[in-house]
Every structure is written in C-alpha cells, then in structure tokens.
C-alpha cells in the first residue's frame, strides 16, 4: 500500500476500538515444526482472545505463514499443543474437519474454484458441509457478496474477475461458513497497488464487526488501524509483540528495528 492511501484509511476511520474479550479462543503451547530437518517454528507460545485482531509480520522465511497454517492444520506441527475453540488439534480427522469449519482462511493466491461460478464458490461450503438448503445458502452468499460489494459478479467465473475482486470473493467464501476466526495469509501480496485498498477496506470493515482475525501482512498502515497486537517473527521465533503504536514507535529488539527500517 502506498503511503498515500494508508493515510486515507486512517483519516477516515481512525484506529478501531479493541473488541477483544477475556475468553481464549486459540492457544499455542511450545509448538515446534520442522520441514524435513529445517526447524521452522521454534517453541511458539501464543494466546489469542476472542475478538482480538493480530497482525503477524516478519521477513520471508520467518515462519509466519507456517504458523497460521498450523492453526487450521493445513500444516502439521510435530511438537506442542494447539487448542482452537476448546478443541485440541491432533490426528483425529473429525476434530480437524470441525475446526476447519470454524476457522476461515484467505490465501495470497485466492484459491477460488475456477470451474464454479462465484455464487457456486460461495454456496459450496454451506450446502455440502453445513447441509443448508440451496435457496438458504444462496441467500447467505448474496448477503456476503453485498458486504464485499460485488453482488453483480455472482454469475461470473473467477477467471473473469480482477485480482482484487477475486480476493474479496475469497473473503466472502470464508465468511459464508460463519467462522469464529479468520486467518489471512498475505491477502494483498499478489495484488496490484490500486486493488490492495479495496481488499483492505473489506478487511477493516470485517474487523469492525468484532471478528477474531490473525493477519500475516506487510501492510503496516493496516496494522496500525486494525491490530490489537503486532507480532514480529524472525527465523521461527516470535521476537517481539506489542500493541501497534508502541511497536512502531519503540521497537525493542535490533532485528525488529532493522526490519521496520527496511519496510517503512
């Protein structure tokens, strides 16, 4: 995001009030993960409260994507405990499927289903997983399409939409499952600058509704407005975490200082 429109959002909205409650919804305890022999996550401890909005940043290869992908078990961790919404992630497939219905995820590459229309993309989960009648699922889908401001694209195929529109559809697709937590894995990294804003706007609005969100992003303007907490990761460690104002103003650790000086 350019400095200019980052300013624009702040100007219009100011910082969002925190919606975090005291109820713990995600709890990571001494989580370790290796890709082969490479140690990607090292003793990660993280507690997320209901309604809390967390931005994770850090240089590439620092393990931030891996961290959030462990939360809905797209990646398997080898040591430690991950408890999501009171359910421990283990080998039990039923638990994993259940958690995935409660945790929505948005990817850098959208991952929409190219053979289905936008509306079918959105109703897939509600119809086949939540077992809702088709009409009801379509109503829900249209509701969320309106919320991401592209109801007129419902009958098109993903290939006919711009990147920003596709990403908003992807957000709507996750919301259709009525998740308790939303994970964003660099949602704007694959987008042209003018499309980044439309996606961030949607995310800011979503944050405004009190959704629990964990966002991996380099959009520091977004972090300043939305985040209750910013987490900086490097080489598999959580190096520093703080509320955004302090985080950007007074970074404590040398690595954080270096990172911030590079991206701001």
């Amino acid at each position: 995001m350019t400095a200019e429109n980052m300013y624009e959002i702040q100007e219009v909205r100011g910082q969002l009030a925190s919606a975090a409650s005291s109820e713990v919804i995600i709890d990571l305890n001494k989580v370790n993960k290796w890709y082969g022999t490479f140690h990607v996550l090292k003793d990660i401890d993280l507690t997320v409260h209901k309604g809390e909005r967390i931005v994770v940043c850090g240089p590439s290869g620092s393990g931030k994507s891996t961290l959030i992908r462990c939360i809905n078990h797209l990646e398997e961790h080898q040591e430690g405990d991950i408890v999501v919404d009171g359910i421990t992630l283990d080998q039990n497939l039923k638990n994993i499927d259940h958690i995935r219905t409660e945790v929505g995820m948005v990817f850098q590459s959208f991952n929409l289903f190219p053979h289905l229309t936008i509306l079918e993309n959105l109703t897939m989960g509600p119809i086949w997983v939540r077992k809702l009648p088709k009409v009801e699922a379509q109503e829900i889908a249209m509701k969320y399409l309106e919320r991401v401001k592209i109801p007129e694209q419902a009958d098109k195929y993903p290939g006919q939409l711009s990147g920003g529109q596709q990403q908003r559809v992807a957000i709507a697709r996750s919301l259709c499952m009525n998740p308790k937590i939303m994970l964003f894995d660099e949602p704007t990294s694959a987008l042209d600058p003018e499309m980044i804003k439309e996606v961030l706007d949607v995310m800011v609005e979503l944050a405004d509704t009190g959704m629990t969100m964990i966002v991996v992003t380099h959009e520091m303007g977004f972090a300043k407005i939305v985040a209750d907490r910013v987490i900086f990761m490097d080489e598999g460690d959580i190096v520093e975490q703080n509320e955004p104002f302090e985080f950007f103003k007074n970074p404590q650790h040398d690595r954080t200082k270096q990172f911030l000086s590079q991206i701001l």
Partner: peptide
C-alpha cells in the same frame, strides 16, 4: 495444491474435496 487447501478451509473432507473440487477440474 491451493485448490486442495481452498477446499479444506471451507471444511470439505477428502471425498468432498475430490468429488466436488478436484475431479471436475
């Protein structure tokens, strides 16, 4: 791989993913 992940994140299991998302494509 993203198609599998997309299907998993909306809660589809193995057969749902294969039958509705992967096989048709």
């Amino acid at each position: 791989k993203g198609q599998y992940e997309g299907a998993h994140t909306i809660g589809l299991g193995y057969w749902g993913t294969m039958g509705l998302i992967i096989m048709p494509q």
